[in-house]
Design a protein around this nucleic acid. Structure first.
Lengths: 225, 225
DNA sequence: TAGATTGTTAATCGATTAACAATC
DNA sequence: TAGATTGTTAATCGATTAACAATC
């Protein structure tokens, strides 16, 4: 599920280093995870291995990409050509993960018809019509808080089914529309709380603390089901 | 824990609308959560209410801010004055959540001594020394993948204890250093998988789908413990 | 064959949810 | 008082971890 992209990334570098197969133990050691858990995860992606050998690299990488839906690229519209929007448009590797931002939209007339990293900026009132005609299903919101709900409504009117929301706002959407919140404030809160706890408890870090190549930090990203 | 910032945000708007108290039922209804869970969450922040009345708004907001550590602001250094870095520097509301980005660093000579949203850009080789002298404990990494580990090492050398990492790379750090990964690729993978599943199962959304003011989408952010 | 590794079933753990008494 | 709401304890659920047989 959420760990699969991590596996994929590691397996790519593992493959580049010339290996032909990989075991759950290898993956677990690298990512600081239990090998059994890795096996379970691969199982949910319907990926099987061979006892004693492990998983054949090209096979497992390919299967992961299929399962993650990275084989066919979905087109997305982005609304809000500010600094965050521009940054996302610049993340060209999204395409390798099945997402292509095909157009940006903004309310600011000064930005209309300009290009950001080669992607054209269009007026927001063309969004709904274009989304419907092009069958775009994914929308990315990088506008100020106050406009996020309005933009979401327009997206939904255009038939968009999944919204990646970078505004710190709870969007109200009909059933069947997926909202994925990228809430940096929540993320920040979790970081600073962990830091506060660490400082409160441990004080200074161990003086002889060293990087340990064999044991990376326990992979933490964030959570909220 | 991770839902508390959400409660805080809602309670602020609730207070602005003139109310003096709030019940777990109110919060749960707004955020699509079980009232019992809300109560449990507030309990972990050592916030109590009164039967029949609920929680007194100024009290609970204040207690949340204290618990989240938003009362005293931590200073942070950001490395990588690209588009993502600039976007983060522009998120001025971080200060209300206890984080102030006091300086940016970059390897590009062209960017040195420029200002981004008023924040000065310094050469990266001054980071370790400055961090140590200013007792900066938080570092934000927005550099390309290939440089992330190097930057992390410099930060740690300067005494930084918590790293907010926007590069899709597993950083290797000593014990006692906190790494918080903001991995947009993982987030994207989860979004597109949910979309794929929804389309596969449901096909089109219900034709009469409407926004429902009383029931927002189930609050989902992402996960990985 | 022996040993590493997968596959699978059971045990543990934590978080969520339910139930209900206590209280204003 | 009656009723809404908190506080708290127990039940459920899902995810993680452990144990062990199957297999190459």
């Amino acid at each position: 599920m959420r760990r699969l992209p991590l596996y994929h990334r590691f397996l790519k570098t593992w493959a580049e280093s010339g290996r032909l197969s990989v075991s759950c133990t290898d993956i677990g050691a690298e990512l600081g995870l239990d090998p059994t858990q890795v096996r379970k995860d691969l199982e949910t992606a319907r990926i099987g291995g061979r006892p004693r050998i492990g998983y054949v690299l090209p096979e497992v990488i390919d299967a992961l990409e299929s399962f993650l839906g990275w084989k066919n690229v979905s087109e997305a519209f982005l609304v809000g050509a500010g600094s965050m929007g521009s940054a996302l448009i610049g993340y060209r590797k999204f395409e390798q993960c099945g997402l292509k931002i095909v157009a940006a939209f903004d309310a600011d007339p000064a930005k209309i018809d300009s290009r950001i990293h080669g992607t054209q900026v269009l007026p927001i009132d063309r969004l709904a019509d274009l989304a419907a005609r092009m069958h775009v299903l994914i929308g990315i919101i990088t506008v100020p808080d106050s406009q996020a709900q309005t933009v979401a409504d327009v997206m939904i009117a255009g038939g968009i089914r999944a919204i990646w929301n970078f505004a710190p706002v709870r969007l109200r959407v009909p059933d069947g529309v997926i909202v994925h919140n990228e809430d940096l404030y929540i993320s920040l809160a979790s970081l600073s709380q962990k830091l506060a706890k660490a400082i409160h408890l441990g004080g200074r870090p161990p003086a002889n603390a060293r990087r340990r190549p064999g044991r990376p930090e326990r992979t933490v990203i964030h959570a909220m089901p």
